[in-house]
Amino acid sequence: MFGKSRLGGFLAGASGLFLLLPLVAVIPFSFTAKRFLSMPDGEYSLRHYVAIFDPDTWLASIGTSTLVALLSSVIATALAAAFGIGIWLRRPASGRFLIGLVLLPIIVPPVTSAVALYFLLAQIGLLDTVPGLVLSHVVMIVPFAVIAILGALSRLDRNLELAARNLGASQMQSIIMVILPNIRFGLFAAWFVSLVMSWEESSVTLFVSGVNVITLPKRIWDNLRLDLDPAVAAISVIMILATTLVILLRKSET
């Protein structure tokens, strides 16, 4: 548009590389044959990938994270869908205020949210339990689901609901038969985003769990803080590859 700017192109390329650099850098470290984090000295090994399958440590954490992420993403999506559809149908005067309220967890510093959720779970005795963790995750990820669903609803023709009602459908019937099918991609996006956000949640998780319930991020955190186990590199490589694959597949679809 503004002519060819070599400098701009070069800088953009450099910025892109900067973003990918740390992700590429961990790859060789995951193949080291040594017990500690190091570049493989001509000796390659998959022992750290095997270590991931230790049912007492990494595998257990992967299981916990999966369970928590599945539960909290489904709950968050359901709550967000109900809220979004409620707003869309009723257009209450307090709509802006309510949306602001449910988006609060994104705006509030994560560490402050963490203190508040710690307080809550301490009061109701759910600290360091799966239900407590799911509750905290729902609070933290629900804004993302709400944004995805409100976005999908904003593209929906209001008259669809009126047409359904008009043809004799009750409000619930029109929600189930007309609104939900038409925002299915938004629902899926909301669920997927919340799943990933919950799977990766670290700030609140570090406050409200960690002894009995150890999620994958918590275990990675402990390893980073204490002894830099190369298994972290192996886990990272798997997560990076999975993410890249999903993104490339989605790109090639469209």
Partner: peptide, 18 residues
Amino acid sequence: FIPFWISVLVRAFGWVVI
């Protein structure tokens, strides 16, 4: 988007390595 979707811990770890 690749870094966007990857855990902040993994990204921090990448910088630790570097």
